[in-house]
Design a protein around this nucleic acid. Structure first.
Lengths: 374, 374
DNA sequence: CTATAATATTAGTACGTATAAATTTTCAAG
DNA sequence: CTTGAAAATTTATACGTACTAATATTATAG
């Protein structure tokens, strides 16, 4: 070994081995090494390059070159995996494909591979997937939580992710027991927007349908209540309808049919829906009951999904970032991955959430309260 | 990846993956690569250096640079992955989420993990994903082909999959140049069903819209033509409209608007659509033109997607197995994986395709030709 | 004191040149 | 045809310059 670069290489390696450089400690910069050894920068870079490839050092542009932590560094890290797990409740329904697309598209561009897991809103499935993720080596995990409003039996698995230094974040909702980084809508404000819009149009008898086994639903309901309180409008006892995953296909429709049997004077004049999917389904019920939207009854959706302007009556609804949210989640998780790779320590994010501002999207499903219904 | 050295790097890697360079074959010398890519020797060496470090190449001073033999290398890193790659054109649109769900759900139950890749119907993306799949170790690949009707530049990658004994199959369509196992609709028959249904209702002036850069579109068009021939009905020259991925958002709508300017006697009385998505879009145009469906004009979709009965006018359409197809694809690929693991030899499937029988789903968008339009 | 803008530092990319060392090719001598 | 020396080719080492991009530090304004 008489080449200059190998002299530099050996010298640095010695300093690592004799403990001069501790793991994650910054070594001399390239220009300092140039002077120190009296060689060109090219030679220094050659030496450092070799050591980086052999796992002795890592470099950070703008920051410096650092001693790597080779303690747990075994054969498995030889294979560059670059893969992110994406757990969602559903994957073919509603706005979820758009969210997934946003994430997949960004991660692909960054050379990452996306593995999909859909829980069908079932904790048992979620558990199985978390086990799989813990068993294999993923760089990061994006989770859309299953039944976020009820207590989650898989908390321990998430804590294990933290222990194993696998970054994760949650979108759309989050488990209250954990305090994960999460990217969500301001659902409470969204619920207020829906309701206030109707109140401003003169409606006072407004029925609200909310799915209450996820946190979005409970927050949107909170917004609905808040809007009533703010405008000092009493809520009729039957006007809050809650449902959940198991009865979502039957209960809201049945309840609405019941409500429509009331005399016209007592009948609600407007409907706040948990989401567009429900709104579209309720539109069918209204059509069957020969009620015109928005003349006879107004209806507001949530999420501004593709469904909203597919129908004859274009839905007034609340915006949801969808693919934008997916993309942001992808960006953030890669950022977390990068940081966790660098420091091998769990990071505390400065701010532990990103909240999207909801906006009302006005279309044709809402109108001022007409006199004739009175 | 837009740096010069990474361009060189990727180019060389591609040539290894597509089989241009066989193991132990000498690749171009540094000076040749300099000319070839118009870069400096330093840049070439950077690229080669990386590839050497990653085990793609090895260098011999004075002799040249050679393609490494990675075959026995990856045997050691066999970690019982149990993962299947799923390449689709789109993932958030239309019926694709359902297909993906069908596959994901089955594969998950079998303990496999699903990695998603969406090409956005772009060959370049398809190539990148195939490279990734060849680089890592997947047990099998399900492909929904990109632009299946035009000649595919990535044939070599598929041949390399065969060479490396990674089973793959195609759904929805297939590349003619290869003869892969594929699971498809009988699209030609589907096109016939659409058209014959209208002919039986008395229509003779039927315009057909077909997307012709995928094989489904060309086959459905074939069915449309066949139905006309069978019933000895001449096709008006303007009644065949073809479009493709790039102009799908504009051309069909524009052409229909033109056609509707014709006097009522010459105007088409029925429309055959490539799929439901297009049918829904054309419904909007018809609504704007104050034409009633199905009284004034009949329209038939294809795929029986969720869109078909979301609108006021429920679409008559042709069934598509969707999630069922995805699930079948999953079953078949696992079968192929099992066989290839057992025999370590490429299998010839007894029958190399599965074809779903299309069925007409009658709803409210088609009606007998009314007298008043004559 | 805090937030922000400007500056400095550090690694990354890319061009150039020159010479050394190992291997292959060529060609002439035997 | 074989051998061996010379020439050509090819990778390896090493110097230089210039600019870019990311990060860290410092100075400044509020």
């Amino acid at each position: 070994m008489q080449t200059k670069y190998s002299i530099v290489k050996e010298a640095i390696k010695s300093q690592i081995l004799d403990g001069t450089f501790q793991p994650h400690e910054k070594i001399s910069s390239e220009s300092e090494l140039m002077e120190e050894f009296g060689v060109s920068r090219h030679t220094v870079r050659l030496a450092i390059g070799d050591l980086v490839n052999q796992g002795w050092l890592y470099r950070e542009q703008g920051a410096g070159t650092f001693c790597a932590d080779r303690s747990k560094n075994n054969a498995q890290s030889m294979v560059e995996q670059k893969s992110i797990a994406l757990i969602t409740t559903y994957l073919s329904d509603y706005i979820f494909p758009s969210i997934i697309r946003g994430a997949e598209s960004y991660l692909s561009k960054q050379g990452y591979q996306v593995s999909l897991f859909s829980t069908n809103n079932d904790h048992e499935n979620e558990r199985k997937f978390l086990e799989k993720i813990l068993t294999q080596q993923f760089d990061g995990v994006i989770v859309e939580p299953t039944k976020s409003a009820v207590s989650n039996p898989n908390i321990n698995y998430y804590l294990n992710l933290e222990r194993e230094n696998i970054p994760y974040l949650m979108i759309n909702a989050y488990y209250d027991e954990l305090e994960p980084f999460h990217i969500v809508m301001d659902d409470e404000k969204g619920g207020m927007l829906q309701t206030e819009h109707l109140i401003e149009l003169g409606h006072t008898n407004i029925v609200g349908f909310f799915k209450t086994d996820d946190i979005q639903g409970t927050k949107r309901m909170k917004g609905y209540l808040k809007a009533h309180r703010k405008h000092a409008i009493d809520i009729q006892p039957n006007n809050i309808v809650t449902y959940n995953t198991v009865d979502k296909a039957t209960k809201p429709a049945a309840v609405l049919k019941e409500l429509l049997k009331e005399p016209a004077s007592k009948r609600p004049t407007a409907i706040v829906c948990y989401n567009d999917e429900l709104a579209i389904r309720l539109l069918d019920i209204l059509r069957e009951a020969r009620l015109k939207v928005p003349e006879d009854i107004s209806i507001v959706g949530f999420d501004n999904s593709f469904m909203a302007d597919l129908t004859e009556v274009k839905l007034t609804t609340v915006s949801h970032p969808q693919s934008e949210m997916g993309e942001l989640a992808a960006k953030v998780i890669l950022d977390m991955v990068k940081k966790s790779k660098a420091s091998k320590k769990q990071q505390n994010m400065e701010n532990d959430l990103i909240r999207f501002e909801p906006k009302l999207v006005e279309r044709n499903s809402t109108a001022p309260l007409s006199k004739k219904t009175k």
